[in-house]
Design a protein around this nucleic acid. Structure first.
Lengths: 231, 231
DNA sequence: CATGGCCACATTGTCAACAATATGTAGTTT
DNA sequence: AAACTACATATTGTTGACAATGTGGCCATG
């Protein structure tokens, strides 16, 4: 019947999502220790599912665990962030290449509509913040999905992107150049529409490489980590 | 004292390694179901650590889990294998680029020694099998390590390579061209020694891309999956 | 005063039992 | 005979208790 069978979600799976959000949003700050008893109490579950959620976070790379010591939220220093951008450059470049070959015409049309949408936001420059954050993610996300490479999608969307979002929120001094980024997005779209895989890949790599260079230029000390230690 | 404090390893961590080896070696065959009670009995542990080990395997991508149903060892079809090779091409290409800039002269020398070693094995063509399997891994492994990119090393050595090893063992018809591969390794080494990052990356990508093309040419049906279902 | 060992405490790792869900079987109905 | 239902069974998800390990504080000693 119209009654949709809503399966009760697993606590451990729920917890993963909740904890990811808590960490990415900074609710649980970088470098802080994850106390199993405390979190178990806070979220009203036993330590079993909680530990499984932590295991998942470890797989994503959001926490690091030491035997008999516990888990800590990772701290991204500049070098690690650059390392991640290098990975992103390689993987998203490949995703873009595969998307150029695999994506449907309707995907291409929808992507163009998204770009027009972004342009509108940018012209009435009230929505600038939207474009910098979610808008940029939207564009990249769709291309990754269009690659139709399941493992690649998993790596980028389930693992790396959480780390990126976490960083962008932490780094108040995150530089971005919305207009230039939009132009680059347009160029990438054109290559995709032309089914030019080589160009699509190289444009995406340069696009991400430029973002990496901006990070390189930043002085080290600033705001990568919020508060050292925290017990 | 000379008494080295050998910390007793965690059961869950131990189990991960044991299970990975069992799956990669085919001891637990592809597509088969992972029964928690059975494995717990077999390895003499409780279901707690076992579940944590399975979670880890899921993170690596060796098993897939469905809520309230359980975990199954993944089956690699041709498309998924090609997908993985695309990822490998992108990531190892980047690793090679970074290694060209980061690796020490002693790393370079040791890598050359390894290649000479491989050449010896190949000339007395008794050791051909060694070169095809572990020798090839050795070479790639060292370059990845030399990239000094912690996340990249983790992705390639802790996640992707288990899947690759699993495939190579399953696919009895795994084609390889040892002499050509060695030549390509030499060319990559030269680019690394010259600190030519651009060339090093493109050579590594082509090297892996060629392996991917060999897979593409294989007929689909053969031996990717051993036995369907197995209850 | 600094250093090192001892001890109590807190946290993590593991276990066995209980609850919730899926699977397979038998029986019934059309 | 096919299909649907109800039930029994096995497996997974979760819980609370117990064991093992790390941490911090206290005291003694140099």
């Amino acid at each position: 019947m119209s009654q949709i069978q809503v399966k009760t979600p697993l606590k451990s799976q729920n917890l993963s999502d909740i904890l990811i959000e808590a960490i990415v949003s900074g609710d649980i700050s970088a470098g802080s220790k994850i106390s199993e008893p405390e979190l178990a109490r806070r979220y009203g579950v036993s330590r079993g599912p909680l530990r499984e959620a932590i295991l998942t976070l470890q797989g994503i790379g959001l926490v690091e665990r030491l035997p008999h010591v516990g888990a800590r939220v990772v701290e991204l220093n500049k070098q690690q962030l650059l390392d991640i951008y290098a990975i992103r450059e390689a993987l998203e470049g490949m995703a873009c290449r595969q998307a150029a070959l695999a994506m449907s015409q309707s995907d291409i049309d929808q992507l163009e509509a998204l770009l027009n949408h972004h342009q509108d936001y940018l012209q009435q420059n009230e929505g600038q913040r939207y474009f910098e954050q979610d808008g940029d993610f939207d564009f990249h996300y769709r291309i990754i999905q269009a690659s139709a490479n399941k493992h690649l999608i998993g790596l980028l969307c389930d693992e790396l992107y959480h780390l990126l979002r976490m960083y962008r929120r932490q780094a108040s001094n995150h530089i971005s150049r919305p207009n230039r980024a939009l132009n680059e997005h347009r160029a990438i779209w054109q290559a995709l529409a032309d089914r030019d895989a080589d160009l699509a890949e190289i444009l995406m790599r340069r696009h991400i490489g430029r973002a990496r260079k901006l990070i390189e230029q930043q002085v080290d000390a600033q705001a990568f980590t919020s508060s050292k230690g925290e017990k």
